[in-house]
Design a protein around this nucleic acid. Structure first.
Lengths: 369, 369
DNA sequence: TTTGTTAGTAAAGGTTACGAACAAACAAAG
DNA sequence: CTTTGTTTGTTCGTAACCTTTACTAACAAA
């Protein structure tokens, strides 16, 4: 057993502290007494915890509750939503790293990016720190932490074990950034990060799977609120799973009929460009959707997922492809038995990874999710 | 937020208590000082906790450690492995309910079963209580609790929401049994239960999936040590996922090419009986294995599972079918990328569900897993 | 003005785990 | 045989935590 698994009295405190922060984060104008009822602790303890939070500037008093109720009027509290900034990075774009400064609500206050065309290895790492420095400089409030969504395989310590497109292997990005900035930093896989964003800001409840379709196909699964990492931190790598039993195109990985050969945007766009009629284009998109549905069916069945969310170029995904996938999914699973299964596009657009990075910081630093 | 999520000092205590029990359970002759080092608490606290456990008869002193070391000789401790009994039930057999009394190690001390041919509904429920009563009577030690692995969809409160074969819907089996026996009782789906057994007694580490092949095909997934329940408590129901894109037989659920049509033992045995040559039989089993591999590939990819375990009739599964599935799985995923993926038969045989039920009790009552 | 209700604070009390110190028991060295 | 050093397990006092009880402040309604 790893040391540190033991519980000390102070862990009780930090747990309850996180509960209070979470209640404040989700709620909208709560008094200490409200918190006591919500969290289940006494007013005394809540007062103590709140005093601590106000002391650290994490919570603020908003003034009296406007209601006219008998008794002493309540003092409303809130998380200091604008008092802190969070930095979120998305390293998954094609030829640029993008990042943003947000407040605690995930509202984007400022954006920045660096061009990374042709960059790999150390040069790409340097580009990350450049971007981080830019964002740190432009933050107008104390920075709570830095979150990074990176392509490739990332372990629990935030080391990028392998990211072929960036020429990275065993890059301890999290340690490097936290040493460089002296700020709490968390690095994770981009699809996992996106899945977290969907759960916190996209309205997903319960277990969620997020599928990212772009140059490749990746996914992130969140079960019981926690991302699934997998035995080798490679969870979500569904792009190179063979789909169907009727052949297909040859993939870069040398197999035939990988999910990526059906869905990766470069291939899909090429096929669409070759198509001459609208009907042909529809057919291509429908088939791509069906393939996605075929691949998702066993996963949805095994995990009894309530919702699968797609992230990627709307023009390609939202429409024929989405409905094709949804139909296939329904036809291939016991949808009625499993209750309603929703397959939909994310509402978070291109910011999804940045927002997920923000969620990681919120979770890591405040215990809020 | 549900009340009760708050942490109190006593939760710290029970957490540490569970850590001590777990260390004792896994270890083999530990002293208080050993425990202190292992768990990370001080000798003082450990002594206090151990005294409590000895007081409840959950731990026993074994006497002095035989070693010749300088210093005060250590007093060895152990969980009172034979001092308590656990009752495990398996309701998933065809025409009988089986159960056993075990000690804390899962060693089976006594077996019992009741015939359930033709029984459904209340009659089947009565058969469960009959079996439990038998086992309770034959237990030679205080009973720690009762665990039940039931077919069908079972929610977190141990209510069987639906079990077609037994004619059950919304049967609050857990409540009924705990009221009847006044013993801590836990009811869960049989495949989930089996997956727990595999993790605790079968030597699986990390995230595990267990596939049960019998009259139907079901599965249980354990991620980060906890079973996955799914949005509607129907996780693991992969029997009616369509496999492949080249048709197949019609299933009882009215779809074509469900996993069950390829793998359910009645169908498989019928096909084998029709086959005339050994080669034909091999081909049938190989194809069945391939279908299993096709269905598992996306799941293994998405979750980056390290191990998939099969449970069912050895004669059918162990051999051509297993190797066929393993090969297909390797061909259809990035096995090299994901590290070693093992596909193997369970070593727990027919007792797997009973043992899983025992694990549920161990986990629920002692925090041991 | 009185009564009842709600919000927040203060003081006292019981748990929980820790650190320091200690006695017991033993091995090894002289 | 004595001394030294090590290890075990316990005792005692302390700090952190949350609770219960009691209290004040502030207001609505009768």
């Amino acid at each position: 057993m790893r040391p540190g698994a033991r519980a000390l009295p102070e862990h009780t405190r930090s747990h309850n502290r996180a509960l209070v922060l979470q209640a404040l984060y989700r709620g909208d104008g709560l008094s200490r007494a409200d918190l006591a009822r919500e969290v289940g602790l006494t007013r005394v303890t809540i007062s103590d915890l709140v005093a601590e939070l106000i002391d650290e500037d994490l919570a603020v008093e908003l003034g009296r509750r406007p209601d006219a109720r008998p008794g002493k009027p309540a003092t409303l509290l809130d998380i200091n939503r604008s008092g802190f900034a969070i930095i979120g990075l998305d390293l998954s774009f094609n030829s640029a790293f993008r990042g943003a400064v947000t407040d605690l609500d995930g509202t984007i206050l400022h954006r920045a990016h660096v061009d990374t065309t042709g960059m790999t290895g150390d040069e790409a790492v340097a580009a990350v720190t450049t971007l981080v420095d830019k964002l740190v400089d432009s933050a107008g409030a104390p920075i709570l932490g830095i979150g990074v969504g990176s392509p490739g395989v990332v372990n629990a310590e935030g080391t990028v074990l392998s990211a072929p497109n960036l020429g990275w292997s065993n890059v301890p990005l999290q340690d490097m950034l936290s040493e460089h900035t002296h700020l709490p930093t968390q690095v994770a896989n981009d699809a996992n990060t996106a899945a977290l964003a969907e759960r916190t800001f996209g309205g997903s409840q319960g277990d969620t799977m997020l599928v990212r379709i772009g140059r490749g196909v990746g996914s992130g699964v969140v079960i019981s609120g926690a991302p699934v990492y997998g035995s080798n931190f490679a969870a979500g790598e569904i792009g190179h799973v063979v789909v169907g039993t009727d052949g297909g195109e040859r993939c870069a990985c040398n197999k035939i009929g990988c999910l990526e050969t059906w869905l990766a945007t470069p291939r899909l766009e090429a096929k669409l460009a070759d198509a001459s009629t609208e009907d042909e284009r529809h057919e291509i998109l429908r088939e791509a959707g069906q393939r996605l549905g075929i691949a998702l069916a066993p996963i949805v069945g095994a995990l009894n997922l309530g919702e699968v969310v797609l992230s990627g170029p709307l023009a390609l995904l939202d429409g024929t492809l989405l409905t094709g996938a949804a139909e296939t999914l329904r036809d291939r699973t016991m949808a009625d038995f499993h209750g309603d299964l929703t397959l939909r596009m994310t509402t978070l657009g291109e910011d999804i990874v940045v927002l997920g990075a923000v969620v990681m910081v919120l979770t890591g630093q405040l215990g809020v999710s």
